[in-house]
Design a protein around this nucleic acid. Structure first.
Length: 472
RNA sequence: GGCCCGUUCGUCUAUCGGUUAGGACAUCUGGUUUUCAACCAGGCAAGAGGGGUUCGACUCCCCUACGGGCUGCCA
């Protein structure tokens, strides 16, 4: 592992996330953003956003909005306004021309047809294209459209000092003179990233390892302009459960889909942080703890597979640990995204009083809602198939006999406990046999919080009314 | 084809030349229990294959296999 360069350690960290606005925020992109965010924020640095919208055909404002929504949901905040790469095209062109002046780039008049013909002819050898214009003096240039190509070294090697991949050596003769400025005057990606990262003061480039090879060429631009090369950290991509590249076939690929599936953002952050990164045995941790622990050295080099079981488990821990108010707030947002009807004020009120007894039994918001059903239904309560079985004539009779005692109860947990255990004993049944019909009557479900908690939450009047409903 | 990266239990991973290869999720067995969730105790389970280097390799080097990436006037 290469240690961080001194120059970079002496200035504040600036990272960035640079998505192409061609669709929703991919879960892999979300993790890349998270790593950048953790690294910068954990060090008091800046986390910037750049929208790589130079591909005018595929870029849409809707996609940009979706990406920002995804980041916001994940809790990743960025500094300043997102930067549009497209709007910086003049600056990119300016740098290309500066390279021309410096002699580190040249005008190439080869047409796309000529290049295509070269590729066709050298299909077998896969030779790299060598422009015949590399060393042609300006006075011999024709009056034709041209591109500006990087005058890259053709021998020797380039070293990428990568914090994750270690030292990576690329032979310079395998690289062609990449195009920096197209014949229509627009910049290519390779030029634009370097110029933007430099101008934005990015100190650490943390991105997918599909860019590892690109780093060698990008370094050449930094060198050509005399700019300082940032610290590289190329992280492996996320794969589906079967080890293949994550695709729609695997289910959810978009961050917002995970929100709709009901995973709490804190759990998602925790899980995603641990996916491809480790710090000893740390598994369940808060974002504050993650910020303190996160480092580049802990990032693994192999692609990690998404494991929904572990995601759920992680989310369960966070769900239980969340403050009631925050949990309710996130639940409301979730219901909106999932297209569920909004909670009424009465429901919210009940929920804020009863969340304590459901949050540690759920791993997703869908489960939370299911467990909270007793707070959300309105009478008459219809017992579902499983719970209806426990409402036979015998148990109805027992429930009915409970009513007078409940009417006189002080409605504390201790009091209710005494009434119910006595009732079970008097009827010669185990407590479980009594709890089942109570669940059916109070919630219409067989999987619910403790019967005591339900009674406490909905209150005396409502409890008795529901029992009466069930016994008629 | 060329170049680059990767490969520890089913999964996420720890290990940075000497460990009974550890933890977590999942799974299995028992316990607890008021259903669900949880909890407690325990079990199963791993260094891709082959060569080196070394007193000693999961760890360092090479080869092979498999997976991934790059090889655009896409990003």
């Amino acid at each position: 592992m290469v240690s961080e360069r001194l120059t970079s350690m002496s200035r504040p960290v600036v990272t960035r996330f640079a998505p192409s606005p061609t669709g929703y925020l991919h879960i892999g992109g979300g993790r890349t953003a998270l790593f950048n965010w953790l690294y910068a924020r954990g060090r008091g640095g800046k986390f910037l956003l750049r929208i790589e919208d130079t591909d005018r055909e595929r870029s849409t404002p809707e996609a940009t909005a979706a990406i920002l929504r995804g980041l916001t949901w994940l809790g990743l905040d960025w500094d300043g306004d997102p930067i549009s790469q497209f709007e910086r095209r003049d600056r990119h062109a300016e740098v290309a021309h500066e390279m021309l002046r410096r002699g580190t780039a040249y005008k190439c008049f080869s047409s796309q047809e000529e290049i295509a013909a070269f590729r066709e002819a050298s299909k077998a050898s896969y030779a790299v294209f060598r422009s015949p214009w590399r060393d042609v003096a300006a006075e011999n240039h024709p009056d034709l459209p041209y591109v500006i190509r990087m005058k890259a070294p053709q021998s020797g090697q380039s070293e990428i000092k990568d914090e994750v991949q270690g030292s990576v050596i690329i032979q310079n003769d395998t690289l062609d003179d990449m195009i920096c400025l197209r014949s229509d005057g627009t910049p290519t990606y390779m030029l634009a990233v370097v110029v933007d990262d430099h101008d934005m003061g990015v100190t650490h480039v943390i991105r997918g390892d599909d860019h590892l090879n690109n780093a060698a060429r990008q370094q050449m631009i930094y060198d050509a302009m005399g700019w300082e090369i940032p610290v590289w950290a190329h992280i492996p991509l996320i794969h589906g459960p079967d080890g293949k590249k994550l695709s729609k076939r695997h289910g959810a690929t978009g961050v917002e889909e995970y929100q709709a599936m009901g995973y709490p953002a804190a759990g998602m952050r925790n899980y995603l942080t641990r996916l491809g990164w480790a710090h000893g045995d740390a598994e369940i941790f808060s974002t504050t703890e993650a910020l303190a622990m996160f480092d580049l050295a802990g990032i693994g080099r192999a692609p990690a597979r998404l494991d929904f079981k572990k995601l759920e488990n992680t989310c369960g821990h966070h769900m239980a640990a969340m403050e009631d108010a925050a949990l309710l707030h996130e639940l409301v947002a979730f219901m909106q995204v999932a297209g569920l009807p909004a909670l009424t004020d009465a429901q919210k009120d009940l929920m804020s009083r009863g969340l304590y007894c459901v949050k540690d039994r759920a791993k997703t918001f869908h489960e939370l809602l299911e467990k909270a059903h007793f707070m959300l239904v309105s009478r008459p309560i219809v017992a579902d198939e499983a719970s209806a079985k426990s409402l036979d004539s015998v148990s109805r009779g027992i429930l009915n006999s409970l009513t007078p005692q409940l009417q006189n109860a002080s409605w504390t947990k201790a009091d209710l406990e005494q009434i119910l255990t006595n009732a079970a004993a008097e009827n010669g049944i185990g407590f479980g046999k009594l709890a089942a019909p109570l669940r059916a009557a109070l919630a219409g479900r067989s999987a619910t919080p403790s019967v005591y908690d339900m009674m406490l939450v909905i209150g005396q009047t409502e409890t008795i009314t529901r029992l009466n409903d069930a016994t008629v």
